[in-house]
Nucleic acid binder design. Structure first.
Length: 412
RNA sequence: CGGGGCGAGGUGUACUGGCUGCACGCACGGUUUGGGACCGUGUAGAUCGAGUUCGAUUCUCGGCGCCCCGACCA
């Protein structure tokens, strides 16, 4: 992709925030804040988000089927589960033209999560023991009216999330699937570059179950949560369930929650009057669990973890582009033509390349922007590089001159 | 939701009870091109309401917005 004509910019004068992800993502114009806790994802930012979500999708496809549920739903779905008045972050929307003669004036809910929505749908079709177990997932925008959105993408009022729901004939079967889902989650965080710093912590199961829920927590100094490590059992506990003794005996670890899995029992299936018929023709309750991953929050967490004083350092799997190609022509048309040729060849070889084709922008600014944007590789074509291309990795200062064929080999 | 801070061109900021200034950006012209180039000419601004005052961007109160601390996070 070309830098020019694609809403790819840098705004290095943008204000500094207390959280790195808010500052760098806005300086790099990956995202643009529309209001507190709500961001537009611009071309660079959307590419990163989609990379993250594609990794999640590939792994989820091994244990479920993708669906796309509505974000806007009738209040009835939330009233059925008793949550319309208890979930205080719920956005309740009444159309501005409510009351006018020809318009509906109902109140709606902007879904903060989808248990209430998916259980009635599942209960309409998956009615036999032969249908169970099964799971569906989606990757969608969620709405939560947080009292205090903060920290860039770490806590928003509108954000992206993958949510998976599994349905089972028994709690034992749910437990078996649950363990499988954990393994898939571990693979996802590995692929996202967070594996080494992400642990599973036990947390409260809330109103739904006496069991623990499980949180995937990434170690992060700027994280909002605190967990404690019981070294004897080698188990991590969220602050809310860690015993006072453990909290005294060990130091808390600052973390940010990147995923959670939650046994739900039969609360939502019962509310939806969703029963299945067993082999004996008897109606039986369906057990359910939900599994979330905050994809946009992960984008923020990655920036928090992987940056230096010059900008972002994306893990290769989620970088917006593999290589940032910088043309330094000095007004020399021959050099520009060479940079164009390199761009065309890389593109033809299916290398994801961001080509900074801006004229009249100083070399320093282009190189600075490459550091800010944070692609794994930087390639420079200039009057100094002759027939070669100078390449370096974002994480190193070591430069190397290579041919276009070498470059393609290296990057594919 | 409690507490604190801040609201000025597109962005970031300074001064100021009467005339708003700077930098970046953007536009035009010219010179430049390996770590955020330079000259010139332009462009564009005081969150809203009430009060005090001859006069408010400035002072007071309130609303709204944003940032930060705390609480919350199914």
């Amino acid at each position: 992709m070309r830098y020019s004509h694609n809403l790819i910019k840098s705004n290095k004068e943008a204000r500094e925030f207390d959280t790195v992800n808010a500052t760098l993502l806005q300086k790099g114009v990956f995202i643009d804040q529309t209001m507190a806790g709500v961001f537009a994802f611009l071309p660079l930012g959307l590419r990163v988000l989609q990379k993250i979500e594609q990794i999640i999708r590939e792994e989820m496809d091994t244990i479920g089927a993708e669906v796309f549920l509505p974000a806007l739903v009738p209040t009835k779905l939330w009233e059925q589960t008793g949550r319309f008045d208890t979930v205080d972050v719920l956005f309740k929307a009444t159309p501005a033209n409510a009351g006018s003669a020809k318009r509906n004036d109902a109140t709606y809910v902007l879904n903060s999560t989808h248990e209430d929505t998916v259980a009635p749908i599942a209960g309409k079709y998956m009615l036999s023991y032969r249908d169970l177990p099964f799971a569906v997932y989606q990757i969608q925008t969620k709405f939560r009216n947080e009292e205090r959105p903060k920290s860039g993408l770490l806590r928003g009022r509108e954000f992206r999330m993958k949510d998976l729901y599994s349905f089972h004939a028994s709690d034992e079967d749910r437990e078996a699937y649950y363990e499988k889902a954990k393994e898939v989650y571990v693979r996802i965080f590995d692929r996202l570059g967070l594996g080494a710093d992400t642990v599973i912590a036990l947390a409260s199961g809330g109103d739904f179950t006496d069991d623990y829920s499980h949180e995937f927590q990434t170690k992060l100094d700027t994280g909002e949560d605190t967990i404690y490590h019981d070294e004897k059992e080698d188990v991590f506990y969220n602050k809310e369930v860690a015993s006072p003794e453990l909290q005294k005996a060990t130091e808390g670890i600052q973390v940010s929650e990147v995923g959670n899995i939650f046994p739900l029992g039969t609360k939502f299936t019962e509310a939806a009057e969703y029963m299945y018929t067993n082999e004996d023709g008897k109606q039986q309750p369906v057990y359910m669990a939900s599994y979330g991953i905050g994809s946009s929050r992960i984008m923020g967490v990655l920036v928090e973890k992987f940056h230096d004083d010059r900008g972002i350092i994306w893990p290769a799997n989620v970088a917006p582009f593999t290589v940032h190609l910088v043309g330094i022509s000095g007004g020399d048309d021959a050099v520009t033509a060479k940079a164009e040729a390199v761009y065309e060849k890389l593109t033809a070889a299916n290398v994801e390349v961001l080509y900074d084709d801006r004229a009249d922008v100083s070399p320093g600014e282009k190189l600075g922007d490459a550091d800010l944007v944070g692609c794994p590789w930087r390639a420079v074509v200039s009057g100094k590089t002759g027939d070669s291309i100078e390449i370096k990795q974002r994480t190193s200062d070591a430069m190397e001159l290579v041919t276009i064929d070498d470059l393609i080999t290296k990057l594919t």
